[in-house]
Design a protein around this nucleic acid. Structure first.
Lengths: 348, 348
DNA sequence: CCTACGGATGGACTCGTGGCCATAACGTAG
DNA sequence: CTACGTTATGGCCACGAGTCCATCCGTAGG
């Protein structure tokens, strides 16, 4: 009581308490849990009774220190309230937990300084693995490489830092953008704006970067007036849409880079009194439940979230099993175009 | 290398490596971090340089074992993809992290057997605190009380197990239901159905239990045909709504107990060709972004999610500070009725 | 009757850090 | 010059479990 250390003793039982109660040694008591067939039937029974009586549960902290490995995996996503990440999180948490590991979660708000703090915490807690949706800049790459060298398994999801040597699980963004643009062009659109950030260094987003190329493939130019740098939030999409619809030659179709940006755009269009799809067509990434509830329902490029989450976990545990010998794997999954009626021929 | 233990040595530096590199003892090296003013300037500088060079970061696992306290808090919610819980999670995670603690997350799917597994994991990992949205039945209460006796701080949110002696943070469900019913009655509705589970023991939900009482206050009976036992999901709300609208005297207004149930109901009404609010009025708990996007926008009872999350964290850290002396606190927060146009006078 | 062997059990040491106590060097008051 | 306090530093053990090695005992084979 004078040591300043929190004393569980008497509050929470350890293996020695169990051993004492059962009248055996600590080693024997432990064997009742780890390899019970090595014990005599009577001993096993006595130890089991003691475990039951004392409500003994092995201290994972001590186990982690001694064994050098935790059963904890870190997950860093962009934002917990973005439904895409919520679904991804659910898939990952369930899969990881079914493998006997726990998940510690944090979100980086797409900022690498916030991410850095999380990485230090995870590293200090000696997580066995890390799944992360990196912030846009590559400032944490050296730190990630040191964690990797230390034996921590790492998989990037949804995005990867340019130049990253890590395994990742991504959507086939280029293919999805091509398909989306083709969908809009097929309805006769030639003035198409993407709702997303065009800041090349701040947000080097594949979708936005593919967009002008996809347009060019159809002989369509991207007006400078359609190019802005915004953050991928519903709020920024709202004001971006207001701006876009007020330029000299406003777009006849909007292509939203994320599901929540589509929500912002939708609100902006309604506030402007513009009808979808009569006045403006709308196409979005992600397939959120509300997109089916609005009138008309929104065309979207659905991501196989569950599949991607499982793939990330699979790669992670492969790395944890193989260590430094694990191959670098880059997986891409295709989006699925869901047509509901928010894209129609442009008026005029 | 023959010990079978994962050897970090050489891979990750510990305080002894730092001490050796700086030419001091481990105790001195540690002081460079914990109380630097006790060191001579030159020594401090040398240790700092060694820490820098070796990328030393204290092992939280060893620290936790020795000190008897972790800087980890567990969070158990109903479902990560339910936006209410996503927002609650964000509020809690941010607040907890700002206090220097990490959050481990799990969802119980409202099932106490799933919850039990999570509790064992958290307990084994020696979390300092636990915030949970309990499953409906009280099967884990004895276990929770043992954790509490062991010194783990526990706060229930959004719901509490009947008979629970734990602190909690809840919505003023009764008041919200009264306000919602009053809102509907003021528009002339007398045939009102609640979308929620009426199973008294399986889902002893305050909102559903208050509902008949609130109706009675206005002299309105609750037809037996409106009472069903369903799970609080969009899917169940969908089929429940289909059923309700087909009874002899269908309701003229629906009162949804959760935001995602309102989504299911909305889809069902559209599939039935019923217009909101001309044919059926709709009122819902939770204020989700999509409720503003549909036509008409949905009236809702918004929960102060951020406030509730912060309150839960505050109670938790109070308990962690005061230990067994911490008072049991039961907090209630009022819902806010947001009127948008999905409630109107019933036809006929 | 002695030895060998295998099954059952116990002991000792270790993981990295936290806390306490000891020690050395140096200055100051008596 | 001694006694004592202060400052700067080092040594040691414990937290609870994992791993290796040692020991004890009974039995079967010679």
């Amino acid at each position: 009581m004078s040591s300043g250390v929190v004393r569980y003793h008497g509050l929470v039982a350890n293996i020695h308490d169990v051993a004492r109660k059962a009248g055996v040694s600590a080693t024997t008591a432990k064997r009742a849990i780890r390899d019970p067939d090595k014990l005599a039937a009577g001993t096993l029974e006595r130890v089991r009774a003691a475990i039951e009586a004392l409500h003994y549960e092995p201290d994972q902290v001590a186990s982690a220190l001694r064994s050098g490995r935790t059963t904890t995996v870190g997950l860093i996503i962009g934002s917990i309230v973005e439904p895409f990440f919520a679904e991804l999180t659910r898939a990952i948490v369930h899969d990881v937990r079914s493998r006997g590991y726990s998940v510690v979660i944090a979100d980086n708000e797409y900022r690498s300084d916030v991410e850095a703090a999380h990485l230090h915490t995870f590293n200090g807690n000696r997580v066995s693995g890390l799944i992360l949706r990196s912030a846009y800049d590559s400032g944490n790459l050296p730190y990630l490489e040191r964690m990797r060298a230390r034996g921590v398994a790492i998989v990037e999801v949804d995005y990867f830092v340019p130049g990253s040597p890590l395994s990742h699980v991504l959507l086939d963004n280029a293919g999805a953008v091509e398909a989306g643009v083709a969908h809009l062009v097929a309805h006769g659109h030639r003035r198409i704006a993407a709702l997303g950030s065009f800041h090349r260094t701040l947000n080097p987003d594949e979708r936005v970067q593919t967009f002008p190329l996809a347009l060019a493939r159809h002989g369509i130019p991207l007006p400078a007036a359609y190019v802005r740098a915004v953050s991928p939030t519903a709020w920024d999409a709202y004001s971006l849409t207001l701006d876009l619809m007020r330029v000299a030659e406003p777009p006849t179709a909007l292509f939203s880079i994320t599901g929540s940006m589509a929500g912002g755009a939708y609100r902006a269009l309604r506030h402007l009194g513009l009808r979808v799809p009569q006045d403006v067509s709308l196409l979005s990434f992600d397939d959120y439940a509300w997109m089916e509830l609005v009138t008309p329902a929104i065309d979207s490029l659905a991501q196989p979230v569950e599949t991607m989450g499982r793939a990330a976990v699979r790669l992670l545990f492969e790395q944890m099993r193989l260590g430094a010998d694990a191959p670098v794997e880059r997986l891409r999954f295709p989006a699925e175009l869901i047509v509901r009626g928010s894209v129609a021929a442009p008026s005029r």
